[in-house]
């Protein structure tokens, strides 16, 4: 007498018992890797930004509209600031998302906090990008000779 007993866990699980939903898992993996790669890049970008703006020349006392015009006349600094804006905002947003997940326990609170976070991120990233690309050294109100 023999009975055919199927091996357990052989592809026959009802999907509702499968714990690891694949898409979610790979998103968190990408986010984890992004935090590390962007972190390395941000050390260079932010330290360079602080050095150029605070340590050389007259430091903070030299920063005004003309200083910004001088930097953004150089495409290297435009790209530098653009990369810093996007990487720092995405890194910071993802970090704050983790913190919300850790501390906000009610689902409704989480949804609200993350909604506010994402709206703020989109607004700031778009505004900052627009400012870099549409910067005009001879904007109305600038009276220096080069703009006559």
């Amino acid at each position: 007498m023999s009975a055919d007993i199927a091996a357990p866990r052989s592809q026959r699980l009802d999907p509702k018992y499968v714990r690891a939903r694949k898409s979610r898992g790979s998103f968190e993996m990408v986010a984890w890797l992004f935090m590390r790669l962007s972190g390395v890049a941000l050390v260079v970008l932010i330290f360079g930004h602080l050095f150029a703006n605070l340590m050389v020349g007259d430091g903070i006392t030299a920063i005004d509209f003309g200083f910004v015009a001088g930097k953004w006349a150089d495409p290297v600094w435009m790209f530098w600031d653009l990369a810093m804006l996007w990487l720092a905002m995405l890194h910071g947003t993802n970090g704050v998302r983790t913190i919300i997940n850790d501390y906000a326990e009610k689902p409704a609170t989480r949804v609200w906090l993350k909604g506010i976070l994402y709206v703020a991120t989109v607004v700031i990233v778009l505004l900052g990008t627009m400012v870099i690309f549409t910067f005009d050294p001879c904007i109305a109100g600038n009276t220096i000779a080069a703009c006559k």
């Binding site: 509209f65 003309g66 703020a120 700031i124 505004l127 627009m130 400012v131 549409t134 904007i139 109100g141």
Partner: peptide, 16 residues
């Protein structure tokens, strides 16, 4: 950083 991007965006308003 949120505040910093806002204050930098004033370069699109006026030098003053």
């Amino acid at each position: 950083l949120l505040v910093h991007v806002l204050d930098t965006s004033l370069v699109r308003v006026s030098p003053g």
